[in-house]
Design a binder for these strands. Structure first.
Lengths: 141, 141
DNA sequence: CTGGATCCCCGGTGATACTG
DNA sequence: CAGTATCACCGGGGATCCAG
């Protein structure tokens, strides 16, 4: 990207700062949307749950066993958020012992690919990141 | 703890199917590493800062203006985290008014691609997500 | 089995003031 | 200009108990 003129996407903020110069503002609606999705993906548990569902439909307690570290509260909350965003479907079977199955929706499955790419980047570069951390922490002395 | 008392369960491994395309590290030490990277990317501010740095080196207060909503404290913290992970470089010029330039490292630039893919997914699907939310919230009545 | 409700701790985050 | 220090608030998240 050229440093000369930065792209002024849509800095039409109503209460834009008096910068005089029209700086590009990344506070576009799209930007917050992206940030929003990223926050969901970066959520501590969302990705774990999605990964567990990549193998097919799972019941509540199956997921609990798949992700031992998650608490019941957080699993419920995470599933609700994913369901609300249309990434996960929730199917209740009103049997005597209630049965609830969770599964990825097509939208949820479509999210797996870009997430997997990011995950692959992480796997490929975690060594460098950890090395950088070691150097940084060492220098902090 | 996950000391499940269940006996030898038959081969119903949760997610051990070999998709070949997606992540296959559901229970490796790498998993926490991936989660870690995802958390950084999903961090409220990290991506914004990285985006601002894609256009080239920027100084501290330039970044503050680029991201009006960020507080000084959070910008400092975010930059430190990114620097620690080797994603951003910090260059101090000991001039009379101190000058500090931040820039993406090659590692940081390499992260931009997978993040951008995820961002594109978000932009492409934010409509569906919001629609799903509207439906969900409506049903909650 | 699948959750909801409650209590409570801790850390992330903003606001503000100060410094080299 | 580029931070650091301090305070205060709030929500994330675990533990636990209860319900359908």
């Amino acid at each position: 990207m050229e440093t000369a003129t930065r792209p002024a996407q849509e800095g039409t903020l109503p209460s834009d700062r008096d910068t005089g110069v029209t700086l590009e503002v990344h506070d576009a609606p799209q930007c917050s949307a992206v940030n929003d999705i990223l926050a969901r993906v970066g959520d501590k548990w969302s990705v774990r749950v999605v990964m567990a569902l990549e193998g097919g439909s799972r019941r509540f307690n199956q997921l609990r066993r798949d992700i031992p570290a998650i608490s019941q509260r957080m699993l419920t909350r995470t599933l609700r958020l994913l369901e609300r965003d249309g990434l996960v479907s929730r199917t209740v079977t009103p049997s005597v012992p209630p049965r609830v199955d969770y599964a990825l929706t097509p939208l949820g499955e479509s999210l797996c690919d870009p997430v997997a790419r990011l995950g692959n980047w992480a796997i490929a570069n975690i060594g460098r990141v950890e090395a950088a951390r070691a150097v940084f922490d060492g220098e902090q002395d």
